[in-house]
Write a protein that binds this DNA or RNA. Structure first.
Length: 107
DNA sequence: AAGTTGACTCTAC
DNA sequence: CGTAGAGCCAACT
């Protein structure tokens, strides 16, 4: 049943560390969701108890209708947004501090 | 059953 | 940086 997937998605979102952010695609990949859209659906339906404000779109901008509050909440957690956009490079999953590579080559 | 919709993403121009 | 199209999946009409 997809109930399990639903719960798994919730679990992954809950597991996102405070002060960091993740994209819908990330949640989808980590939870095994077939598509990022499912993540959005779960959040819309049952995200009231989850740290939904840590979930951003692939370009670092939050969903249009929530943008205002989301950025506000993130700011309260120490995630500083550059305009309407959040620096995914810096806050996304808190990637390793060093990749033996110059800037821009990460990921 | 077929068409829309939506807290999405990617590639192309 | 912007728009456009295609792919995507489950719920809703």
């Amino acid at each position: 049943m997809d109930d399990e997937l639903h719960e798994r998605i919730r679990a992954v979102i809950t597991g996102v560390p405070a002060g960091t952010v993740a994209t819908y695609g990330d949640i989808a990949a980590l939870s095994g969701a077939p598509s990022p859209r499912l993540v959005g659906r779960v959040l819309a339906e049952d995200g009231h108890d989850l740290p939904w404000h840590r979930i951003l779109r692939a370009d670092g901008t939050p969903a249009p209708h929530l943008a205002h509050e989301q950025l506000e909440r993130l700011r309260a957690e120490g995630v500083l947004a550059d305009g309407p956009r959040v620096n995914l490079r810096k806050y996304r999953r808190q990637v390793e501090p060093d990749s033996a590579d110059g800037p821009g080559t990460l990921f």
